[in-house]
Design a protein around this nucleic acid. Structure first.
Length: 529
RNA sequence: GCUCACGUAGCUCAGCGGAUAGAGCACUUGCCUCCGGAGCAAGGGGUCGCAGGUUCAAGUCCUGCCGUGAGCGCCA
């Protein structure tokens, strides 16, 4: 371009022409930065438009698509533990974000319900007796039952053989085997729904898309791969060698589609799932909210699917990966006895801790109301702790920090929201009635808050783009900080009529953005706490 | 061994190739005749793991090394 950076900056400003209806001033700073200062009138007009908008200024996707989001995916006949927390919480937030953007979301809870372990579970169930087994499982002792089956599997060759044969029978559609299998599925589903209800996620029975659902397609996967010339036999197994994958010895790494014993592994169901989503659901994108350790497996699924021509360049395939939940010792979170922490126990503790905190800080609140709010605060705290950091990193689980009312936590955001509700209660003013008020931004905190509110759209899209809910968290925390600063320095109810109306508008819009933002994270915003 | 991710204040974490790297906790100091002090205002605290490279400009991109964690054929 020629000229010094400052000269270039000046030429840019000259070329931009008259922007006085938008900008109050411009300046060239430092080595050539152009600083633009918005005119108050422009911000005020934008704020009015935001307040009048149901979507609070958030744009919808230009080309709505159909997005399958694979998340949660607990294992039938096994307890949900902290390992399932992240997939469920992050996946649910991503689902909400994608849906808010205007896409059709296909929530897919890919239940682990079809693996080799079902052979041993069913055989153990037969050994124990159906009625007795149902009793055990009914009281929720899923882990105990599983462990006993596992123990027998490891200890007895005979049991191991029976288990493997049972898997083949299951996948072959044997009616009696399927009947026994359904006992596990139905008992487990009741238990999963209890957790989902507690957690407040969107998943319902309609979203269950277990591995079993693809059973009828597994032979077809083999046929298609064979027809495409991709299938090879290796050590008795049917495999595909996608390019670019190597094992320990630097030899090509196969994806095993059908095992040597004739059974199908998870690769087969994952491939069948891809076919199903493209051909039956006509998706434009597939998201897998699955832990980072499975990166290679998912890369292979994508590679094979693209080699086979099942998905073309127009269909996105993204691994929304996340790190592990660690204890204070920086190791994978375990209970005192060294076992994985049960999710239900963790959620109960969160609510209990929140209830204690509320009782202490707000003793006037009636017990039933407190119980209701404690769920929102406790569950919100757990979810927010999971969502507020970059998902790819491991994070350290810390009760004290996540339930703190200071800092980047759910309770702090919820508190900001509750305070605003309190203002309207005290004033006896209807929230919706202030939305047509004319904004007047005289104080720098009012201006800062207004500017922040106008950035909600950008925050949502930043979070969407890359599927990073923590970007929305950071925004909401900044919003709460801007609001509390405003609240501290700009009296609302005591101000003169025009200023008061403008400030009530700021309050209402802040509460709406906060509530909407928290909802996109799957977190509730109580009106009192 | 190969591959991937991560390494930013004492701790927990943000940080879109751009200006003097930011929060919270902890520590220090102010602020309650005032809408919820579960708060606000401010201060101290950093060779952004190390070394090269690309660039007008690197915490950010590339390469190598070090450290940590994970994955690497018939579990899912």
């Amino acid at each position: 371009m020629g000229g010094s950076p400052r000269d270039v900056a000046q030429r840019v400003l000259d070329a931009a022409g008259d922007l006085s209806d938008i900008l109050a001033s411009t300046e060239i700073a430092g080595p050539g930065f152009i600083n633009l200062v918005f005119a108050d009138a422009f911000i005020e007009a934008q704020l009015s438009a935001t307040a009048a908008d149901e979507r609070l200024g958030v744009r919808a996707a230009e080309r709505p698509g159909r997005v399958a989001i694979d998340y949660s995916a607990p294992n039938v006949a096994k307890e949900m533990h902290v390992g399932h927390l992240r997939s469920t919480v992050i996946g649910d937030s991503v689902a909400r974000l994608v849906q808010f953007a205007g896409h059709t979301v296909i929530r897919a809870n890919h239940l682990g319900a079809w693996g080799t372990q079902f052979g041993m579970l069913i055989e153990h169930l037969l050994d124990v007796g159906e009625d007795k087994a149902a009793d055990e499982l009914g009281v929720g002792d899923l882990d105990g039952f599983y462990k006993e089956a596992r123990r027998k599997f490891d200890a007895s060759e005979d049991f191991k053989t029976r288990s493997r044969e049972r898997v083949v029978a299951l996948q072959g559609g044997d009616a009696e085997t399927l009947r026994l299998w359904r006992i596990f599925v139905s008992l487990s589903t009741v238990y999963f729904n209890e957790i989902y209800g507690r957690l407040g996620v969107l998943l319902t029975d309609d979203d269950l898309m277990g591995e079993s659902a693809y059973n009828d397609m597994l032979d077809d996967v083999i046929h298609r791969l064979g027809a495409a010339g991709l299938l090879q036999v290796d050590d008795g197994a049917d495999v595909v060698f996608p390019a670019g994958f190597a094992n320990r010895d630097n030899e090509p790494l196969p994806m095993i589609v059908r095992k040597g014993d004739g059974g199908y592994g998870y690769a087969a169901t994952d491939l069948a799932t891809v076919i199903d989503r493209v051909e039956r659901s006509h998706v434009t994108a597939m998201l897998y909210v699955v832990g980072a350790p499975q990166a290679q497996h998912l890369q292979m699924v994508e590679a094979v699917s693209r080699m086979a021509g099942w998905i073309d360049d127009g269909v996105k395939f993204d691994h929304v990966a996340f790190g592990s939940v660690l204890g204070s010792d920086r190791k994978m979170l375990k209970s005192r006895s060294g076992e994985s922490v049960k999710l239900i126990a963790l959620l109960d503790e969160a609510v209990e801790r929140a209830a204690t905190a509320i009782a202490e800080k707000n003793p006037e609140m009636p017990a039933d109301e407190r119980a209701r709010v404690a769920v929102m605060v406790g569950i919100g705290a757990v979810k927010y702790a999971d969502l507020s950091g970059d998902r790819i990193k491991d994070y350290i689980f810390d009760w004290e920090r996540m339930l703190s009312f200071d800092g980047n936590t759910a309770p702090y955001l919820q508190y900001a929201h509750a305070r605003i509700c309190s203002i309207f209660r005290r004033a006896g003013v209807d929230r919706a009635s202030v939305r047509a008020a004319r904004p007047a931004l005289g104080d720098p905190r009012e201006r800062a808050l207004a500017l922040r509110l106008l950035r909600f759209d950008a925050a949502v899209w930043d979070a969407l783009d890359g599927y990073q809910p923590h970007k929305l968290c950071t925004y909401l925390y900044d919003l709460a900080s801007d609001f509390t600063s405003f609240y501290e320095h700009c009296p609302v109810l005591k101000a003169d009529d025009a200023v008061r109306a403008s400030r009530l508008l700021l309050c209402d819009t802040t509460a709406r953005v906060m509530s909407c933002g928290l909802d996109l994270l799957g977190i509730q915003a109580p009106e009192q706490m």
